[in-house]
Design a protein around this nucleic acid. Structure first.
Lengths: 350, 350
DNA sequence: GTGAAAGCGCTAACAG
DNA sequence: CTGTTAGCGCTTTCAC
């Protein structure tokens, strides 16, 4: 069953009594071939069990592989378990699949070496998801190879790529909470830096922020003019850490009347924490999230959140990467987010 | 920044004043080269910005691509959102990454055409996840190409591949429930067939089962000697459908004292359904799942479940695929599952 | 230790 | 419409 003894185009051509180039045309359709000739070639191919041109040889000849790499920076140690990543990845996979482009999936541990595949893998372009630093060695390796790339969640430094309008989303949420009369609002932040632990932070002096979405969302907080009464950082965007961080916020003496969480998983954790502390949501405390996930386990509650189109973001990113692979340039796209009011936010308690 | 005008090994060889073959050896280390010569070659390479042999040309020459395809049968319309799939995929990605093998991710819609990538993508072997039918056109296409493949969750028909001991897991769960005094046990099944709707089913006449894990788990039910008092089928393994299906079971006149769900997501939904109906878990009704997921949102409860090693399953599958790519054969492996008793099962009510 | 030569399987000019 | 020719960039015998 090895791949070694498969027939080649030359075999097919010989069997059909035509030249290799004609046989090639019969398969690619990229040139005039008499119908009868083509049929003869295809018949010979079927006879020999030839299933089509060897894609590697084709790639070598064409100078293009038709493969886009997706590099997952697994600082979360869980790129696959974060619905934000998988949602985007789904969009990427759909778009590339429809275009007949291959998707080479590469895990990068970020704290380890540059993956072999980044240095030697076959790819025409790359999509970078979840790496925080423009000076990342992975990016350096790609630059050295001359492999163009786009970043998901493009930061302010980027001139190309796809991102969402984080800041506007946060501003919308803050306005929503203010409209409900909330003045004591706490922020439950996504991680600020690698390896940070879950804990309270001072919202007035955060220090440098390593992750673009986190930075963008804090920018939204500033833009909205909100001065949080308190802030906590979760070590990663998972329910457990959201619960732990929210607990720190809710056990303070000056308990906030609303928690603005930077992700829906964190917000979901905050709702659980509130319930555990005997607080009613939203009567005693309102909770808002970000991303627009469906969290069926929160039922009958539904999160108030800023909805981003994950699949769409993935598709656009894939399209950008395909453009780069074609030698075209692609613009910086910033997708809008839409406020979705659920049942977890309500009027501020008196 | 195109890939087109990159230096080749010939350029490097010329610059270093050696032959191409020597330059090749300097990079691959697969032959005797004087240290001084090698240094000269590497210096010339650095000078020219040559980052190493073109992987496509190397593949063509070697007749191997170093790429393993992972075909996701997306009958769930959600291969990425099911933690079972992503967990396995994570294991596959880790193992292949460590071996320097590429992972070509291919989505297959199952009801559409065979994806172009399955027919033309570059791969030495393939891993099939989530396709139900051995006669699937995707598998036919791979066979025609001579691409060897392994299936995740290998069925009884398979002679190779990796699976888990579903039946033993179910038997263990049934024994656990029986040990607690339960005699009225209902089954909350994974989908039996494509496009089935969520609803009650007759456990004594299920008809043909299209999905291997579902079939294997029902086999476990039979093996345990359990005659369920009722059964419901969920249209997919998600919390919502588990909730809906469990509701149907719990609203019956002869309410079961325990629900045995075929997946943790379904079980989680069942816990929610019970709570909504004012039933205490486990005092009024016990719920057991399967898979061993962590569901932090169920806190403070923890599911009683049969734990499978998802990452390990992925790693073994990848190892099997790598063996196939090397022309070796690989055995059928069936991984054990381990009963984990949580807080959602307890003594049967009097 | 190093070089020359052959060729992996295919496509794209270019002639005819 | 079809055939001839020339590589794509590399690895690998095989001589020297």
């Amino acid at each position: 069953m090895g791949q070694s003894d498969r027939p080649t185009l030359a075999d097919v051509a010989a069997a059909a009594g035509v030249s290799v180039s004609t046989a090639s045309l019969a398969f690619s359709g990229a040139g005039p071939v008499a119908a009868s000739t083509r049929d003869r070639v295809l018949a010979a191919a079927a006879e020999l069990g030839y299933t089509g041109p060897n894609p590697i040889a084709r790639s070598l000849r064409r100078g293009r592989s038709g493969v886009i790499a997706v590099v997952l920076g697994a600082e979360l140690a869980s790129a696959f378990s974060d619905p934000i990543h998988t949602g985007t990845l789904d969009g990427v996979a759909r778009e590339l699949g429809e275009r007949g482009l291959g998707l080479l999936l590469v895990r990068s541990d970020h704290f380890g070496d540059v993956p072999t595949l980044v240095r030697e893998g076959v790819m025409d372009a790359a999509i970078i998801a979840g790496l925080s630093d423009l000076a990342d060695p992975v990016l350096d390796a790609l630059r050295a190879r001359g492999v163009p790339f786009v970043r998901v969640d493009a930061g302010p430094q980027d001139v190309a790529g796809v991102g969402i309008d984080d800041a506007a989303g946060i501003v919308g949420l803050v306005e929503h909470l203010r409209g409900l009369g909330h003045s004591r609002i706490a922020v439950l932040s996504l991680p600020l830096r690698h390896r940070d632990a879950t804990g309270l932070v001072d919202p007035r002096s955060l220090g440098p922020i390593a992750f673009t979405p986190t930075a963008n969302r804090w920018a939204g907080v500033r833009e909205s003019g909100l001065v949080p009464v308190a802030a906590a950082e979760a070590s990663s965007s998972v329910v457990e850490e959201g619960r732990a961080a929210a607990r720190l916020l809710l056990e303070r003496d000056d308990r906030p009347t609303a928690i603005l969480a930077f992700s829906d998983l964190l917000a979901g954790g905050a709702v659980l924490a509130a319930r555990e502390l005997g607080l009613r949501v939203p009567q005693d405390v309102s909770v808002a999230g970000f991303d627009g996930l469906e969290l069926p386990w929160l039922a009958p509650d539904r999160l108030t959140t800023a909805v981003q189109g994950l699949v769409e973001k993935g598709r656009l990113t894939a399209r950008a990467a395909a453009a780069l692979a074609d030698g075209e340039s692609s613009p910086l796209v910033r997708l809008p987010v839409v406020l979705r009011v659920g049942t977890t936010t309500g009027p501020a308690p008196a």
